[in-house]
Design a protein around this nucleic acid. Structure first.
Length: 570
DNA sequence: TCGGTCACGTA
DNA sequence: CGTACGTGACCGAG
């Protein structure tokens, strides 16, 4: 068997048809082979450095990753569909429809009965231009010829997406080739692949450390339902005894509010920040706040979490998405909201370490870059950009920070109000950028981020409409969302571009990115490899920033440290 | 059983 | 009336 070879970077669609073999499509060619080991063949093909084009990494690359193959380059049609068309889903039916300007098919059509399939012909594309539901339900893997056709369809979508990306404006002060939207499409694609890898690799947990913490905090691992009930009651009693000792439902906010009212504490709700003020004078409130923290650990990060999400190899695994909402990565299994007290338990086995890197002040720096505000960009030349901002506002650092954050979040009242007026004077270009975004949001007009992500305000409208609220409140909400999403979304794009560069720098070693947390990257590696990895992380940021913010003079800074566990400071 | 609400963790 | 997200408990409607 002679394998095809490609020029490096050639877009090639691989389709593995289980039980049949492997089909490829590229340019105007297709090729197929019957092989029991398609991933082995793919590994050989990888040597010529194609750019793999797939419907979505989750469907195609999961098996590759499991087999140890780490592709170096890809174009993820689903990820690019999310980016360019603002989709909130990445299934092939939606990706195809968006690329062809067709209405999005009902997402529930994946679950069909045979009866529903009546009228679906044998062709992969229906008369109305949509993908055949039969084909979507893995009709493409029935034989190699179908697999080749399926690969050809993906290639068509790639051509359409590439053309669409090429039409998007390059928002950099000094546009160059490849364009910023093109580079963003590539890094979003890599992020989608990274999401599959993160799911596969997991995050190392020191079970002894974790179990000792849980035992001390919520009690030993329950051996029965009765154990569970007893331990729950024991926690509750620590609060009850401050309020007369009678059992009551602490998990019901209304009950808690009435309870507090009977003891002379009248509050509109029982949120912790509100109760904080009463804790000093009321041991009962203090006990309640402690109970809340413990209860959070017990329910969300307790023994059931350990059982469900930490595998036998002592690694925590969740589902990752490369872009939700404004474009940030998300993860389940608590990976993105793990309380800091649990971080000591994030600890690789002996001989391995974590290289922890986080971007400093990423959002204001991103604002400086995307808005093209030269004064703010000059401030972003400093390690601590709030210092020059404070000087410009003639305020202290704390006020400057609040003012910048208030501008990006759309806050208009409170102590930030006055500083915001100074912001308008000092950084009119950045403020105009944010105001413009807000205006779009208020009237429900779509926006595009710096890198080209379409922010569909109409989708948000549905969500907010369901939650009710007066029209002016609604418009305000859209405005604040849009204002923030332009910054948060662009920051997410920079972060993913950085992560993709770091990932590439780690190839050919056993170092792995194991966590992405909006502005923080965790790499697990051998202890004797940590210095090299730190270099890859720092160098990766410099290289990424040079094209991402090229010409803006904005500096991006990262704190990098090698640590044994995640709790250790920089 | 499902969606809404409250609550709270991370960034 | 500062943003985003994921998770869990509870409630009330179906």
């Amino acid at each position: 068997m002679t394998l095809p070879t490609f020029e490096p970077g050639t877009p090639v669609v691989p389709v593995v048809a289980p039980g049949h073999g492997l089909a490829l499509a590229w340019g105007s060619s297709t090729w197929a082979t019957r092989t029991p080991d398609p991933v082995g063949t793919l590994a050989q093909l990888e040597a010529s450095h194609p750019r793999w084009v797939w419907w979505r990494a989750r469907d195609t690359a999961t098996g590759w990753i499991a087999a140890g193959l780490r592709p170096r380059s890809c174009w993820d049609l689903g990820a690019v569909g999310r980016l360019v068309h603002g989709l909130d889903r990445d299934d092939p039916a939606a990706t195809w429809a968006a690329a062809h300007g067709l209405p999005l098919p009902d997402p529930a059509e994946g679950a069909l009965t045979l009866l529903d399939l009546e009228g679906e012909g044998p062709e992969p594309v229906r008369a109305d231009g949509q993908l055949s539901r039969e084909w979507l339900r893995e009709g493409w893997c029935s034989d190699l010829e179908s697999a080749q056709r399926w690969a050809g369809l993906a290639l068509q979508v790639h051509i359409r997406q590439s053309a669409e990306v090429a039409r998007l404006p390059d928002a950099r002060p000094a546009p160059s080739t490849p364009s910023l939207p093109h580079l963003t499409a590539l890094s979003e694609s890599m992020a989608a692949l990274l999401a599959v890898e993160l799911e596969h690799d997991g995050l190392a947990i020191d079970r002894d450390v974790l179990e000792a913490f849980l035992t001390a905090t919520v009690g030993p691992r329950p051996r029965s339902d009765a154990d569970e009930v007893a331990s729950r009651r024991a926690r509750d009693e620590l609060v009850w005894r401050h309020f007369g000792g009678d059992p009551m439902d602490l998990r019901n906010p209304a009950t808690v509010r009435d309870l507090l009212a009977r003891h002379g504490i009248a509050v509109p709700d029982t949120r912790s920040w509100r109760l904080e003020a009463y804790a000093a004078d009321s041991p009962g409130v203090a006990a309640l706040l402690t109970w809340r923290k413990t209860e959070r650990i017990a329910t969300t990060y307790g023994w059931s979490w350990v059982e469900r999400d930490i595998a036998g190899d002592d690694r925590l695994r969740g589902q990752w998405s490369a872009a939700e909402g404004a474009g940030r990565m998300t993860a389940s299994a608590g990976l993105h909201n793990m309380p800091t007290e649990l971080r000591p338990a994030v600890r690789p086995p002996a001989g391995r370490v974590l290289v922890r890197a986080d971007l400093g002040q990423i959002e204001p720096r991103v604002l400086a870059a995307v808005s093209g505000d030269r004064a703010l960009a000059a401030a972003a030349g400093e390690d601590d950009m709030y210092a020059p901002v404070a000087a410009a506002l003639r305020s202290d650092r704390a006020t400057a920070k609040v003012a910048v954050l208030a501008a990006m979040y759309g806050q208009t009242s409170g102590p930030a109000g006055e500083a915001l007026r100074d912001m308008e004077r000092a950084y009119p270009v950045a403020m105009a950028y944010l105001r413009e975004a807000e205006a779009h949001g208020r009237r429900g007009a779509d926006l595009r981020t710096y890198g080209g992500r379409l922010l569909r305000l109409s989708h948000l409208a549905d969500r907010l409409a369901r939650s009710g609220g007066a029209d002016s409140t609604l418009a305000h909400s859209y405005g604040r969302f849009a204002r923030n999403a332009m910054v948060q979304g662009a920051a997410a794009e920079l972060f993913k571009a950085w992560a993709a560069t770091v990932r590439a720098g780690l190839a050919d070693s056993d170092a792995r990115i194991v966590l992405c947390l909006h502005d923080e990257l965790l790499v697990e590696c051998r202890a004797d490899d940590a210095d090299r990895v730190s270099g890859v992380v720092i160098e990766g940021l410099a290289r990424t920033a040079s094209w991402w913010a090229g010409g803006s003079a904005v500096r991006f800074v990262a704190d990098v440290a090698t640590v044994r566990d995640w709790s250790q400071a920089h």
